[in-house]
Amino acid sequence: MNITEILFWLLTAVALGGALLVVTSKNPVYSVLALIATFFALSGHYILLNAQFLAVVNLIVYAGAIMVLFLFVIMLMNLNTETEPQKNKWLKLAGTIAGGCFLLVLVAALRDADSKSTMALVGSGDTGLIQNLGKALFNEYVIPFEISSVLFLSAMVGAVVLGKK
């Protein structure tokens, strides 16, 4: 078992544990903190796959901006364990069984999937470096990039309009 495998399993354990904590914890603030841990683990996975640009963007955008926004809204509303609405336990059980069946079906369907290659390249390959991604982004994908700026503008206008009501 080399260092790459150890890191892979460690990051997987952190990601899955964080995701389970998001779903199970009663206090919404703990959910946000667990989700931040999950995003850090996923960034570690991106670094392991040598997708350095995406790892940094994931940290800045998700763990930085979006999760702080969530935490800000939760603290603004003063949500805690007492105000947390609970479903009755039969609905919870039914939801868990439904999600588990979903996982079971997908794993069974994709276990023997016929992919072209069975290994993902770890720790090498220049694809994820910022130079190559930047060249592709500003040559082939320059129009979607500009359109996404319009999307941001409309999202900003929408958030301001909704907030002023």
Binding site: V22, V23, P85, K92, T96, A98, G99, L103
Partner: peptide, 12 residues
Amino acid sequence: SIGVIGVLTRRN
């Protein structure tokens, strides 16, 4: 799947 379970079981 954990995300799906969360959507199905939580009300917040």
